[in-house]
Design a protein around this nucleic acid. Structure first.
Lengths: 196, 196
DNA sequence: ACTAAAACCAAGCAAGCGCTAGTGTTAATG
DNA sequence: CATTAACACTAGCGCTTGCTTGGTTTTAGT
């Protein structure tokens, strides 16, 4: 279990590992491949990380931390309007999914490869992130902006957003902002936006 | 690449493999584990499948075939109302996700482990399934039941539905039908349901 | 009863795996 | 100038992997 990733060297190694984990999958990525891409020998790798598992944990942790801080600043800048806050969260989510794509793809696909301890540690970060979402969705529900069960809405929305990593093309015509707006528009009835 | 899975013995082996692939992941599932659960010796496994890859392909293919046929009959029984057809597709999707859960979890998580040929073959099945969805969504858009970009709506909806494998509890209070209804309700404005 | 095909088995190979031990090498600190 | 800590290297151990081989048993058609 990693507590914090501060050293810039470590950060860089983690970035390399994330790319490899995405391209090959965690299990197929060997410590020798990792070392090769990091320009060190495979033995030296274990000076930086206790074992292969810890690299996986560090990759995911890094992505989660970034997602959390980006979402927090986005919310702080969004003001109080439920509509603006919903937009801000969706936009922040998509932007993180892009800038930190590798880390998040690893989190989505290789979560089950985490051992018990790492998993427990990361679950806390994930819960904190989902709590942010839940809060914004509760506000939107209370304002009559959207309808439905509060937990279901959160899960459906996060599902739709996370699924974008499968099809979204950053070089395509649509920006993350536009995408976020379209998702919010899909679940907000046309007239709800204008009610006080 | 598998062409068809007819033999009942083969079907059973595939079912066992799917379960193991879900529990352990494709890469961590060894041919010895597979053989053990299939009550044969690891060497005998290669009488039924050319290699480990083919088992993965067969598992996914089986799930896709079932999903396609269930969706088709659901649509046939749903009539012409866009609302009913949307409901039917969502319900069919969730029911397949439950009854064939293992196969679909494998398809979602281990898709990238497929080699080029198997992938190309399965992409056709997936495209056929998504075409069904696209058609139903186009009808709903034309009827004014929902709003937005037709491709985005399909992707967002399928994302939300596929994400359910992460959190849905079959023993929980909500049935797949109820879940499907809630999703459709979330994206259809309240007044749209009553317009002619 | 005869035969062919399908299903299965024991044994093991070659390759690759994660990881360790022991040894420099470098650069900052007392 | 000596010490230390961080980082990197070489070499390889012990084990597991997917898959093959060469042969035996079981099943099904005639």
């Amino acid at each position: 279990m990693t507590v914090v990733n501060v050293s810039p060297r470590r950060k860089e190694l983690i970035r390399v590992a994330a790319r490899l984990f995405v391209d090959e999958g965690f299990d197929r990525t060997t410590v020798r491949m990792l070392a090769l891409e990091m320009n060190i020998k495979s033995g030296s790798l274990f000076h930086h990380f206790r074992d292969k598992q810890e690299i996986l944990c560090a990759v995911i942790e890094e992505g989660m931390h970034n997602a959390l801080s980006i979402a927090r600043t986005a919310l702080a800048e969004a003001g109080c309007s439920p509509q603006a806050r919903l937009d801000a969260m969706a936009r922040a989510h998509l932007e993180t999914l892009l800038t930190d794509r590798n880390a998040h793809v690893v989190a989505l696909y290789e979560w089950r490869r985490l051992d018990g301890d790492s998993r427990a540690h990361l679950v806390h970060l994930r819960d904190a992130y989902e709590a942010l979402w839940q809060q914004v969705i509760d506000e939107a529900l209370e304002a009559g902006l959207i309808r439905g069960d509060k937990f279901l809405v959160r899960r459906f929305v996060l599902g739709a957003l996370n699924w974008t990593v499968r099809w979204y093309d950053p070089d395509g015509p649509r920006s993350p902002e536009a995408l976020a707006k379209e998702l919010v528009a899909m679940i907000t009835p046309p007239e709800a936006a204008e009610s006080p």
